[in-house]
Nucleic acid binder design. Structure first.
Lengths: 116, 116
DNA sequence: GGCGATCGTTACGCAAGCGTTTCTTTTACG
DNA sequence: CGTAAAAGAAACGCTTGCGTAACGATCGCC
């Protein structure tokens, strides 16, 4: 079920969601961090540093740093892969799921509130 | 005309748009910068540093710095208000309008492409 | 077993953002 | 006038992110 949006609706939605998120949340995730977080929570695991780097089209240190930051915020977790100990598997956390759930609600509510 | 989204659609839309934006554009605007840019282009002028700071709930230097950065990118422009020379009026640019137009298209296209 | 390849991290120097405080210019108003 | 208030910018020290390059740990395979 695709979502059909007019240009005004598309940018208006982004405007109100972004604005509200800035006002409400002190955790100011960058665009890249947000992309990584959504990728981890919306795409079936497993997720690795290398895989995320390839998906986003960025270098591996970018992923490592983003995981450092978001790990400190409790939004993601890292676990060594015991089958191949070179790999690190990125795990979801309860707090991260909660964060995205609230963010999803924000999008939905701002979508409803778009000018008629 | 409100936009009705399911949680899966809301986050899925954000996911694909964010991901594509990271992949396509080297200009990595922060959430705050994006909020400022959208406010300038979607809300009727005039826009001032003080007004934007109040709207976003941040301090004035945050706005000044964001305008510095986005000004260097050609996305916005600053002009002294001749009626009250203490004020600075933030102006839109052709390049900024183009940037948001392309971004709007990205949202619309990713919305259409959401899983059925 | 040894050796090249792979994975993630760390180190480095640099650029950009932050909050707080201070400064400059301009206005308002007694 | 002249003095206080207001708007925006600049200064300060700090934190965080960047890209490139180098590094240690682990695997695969002969």
């Amino acid at each position: 079920m695709p979502v059909e949006l007019t240009p005004s609706q598309a940018l208006g939605l982004w405007h109100s969601v972004t604005l509200e998120q800035v006002r409400v949340d002190s955790r100011d995730l960058t665009l890249r961090q947000m992309a990584i977080l959504l990728q981890i929570y919306l795409v079936p695991p497993p997720h690795t540093v290398r895989g995320l780097a390839a998906t986003l089209g960025v270098t591996k240190p970018v992923i490592t740093r983003a995981l450092d930051t978001m790990g400190a915020l409790g939004l993601v977790d890292r676990v060594r892969d015991e089958r191949d100990r070179r790999n690190v598997v990125i795990k979801r956390t309860v707090e991260g799921a909660l964060y995205l759930e609230k963010f999803g609600d924000l999008i939905i509510n701002q979508g409803r509130r778009l000018p008629l």
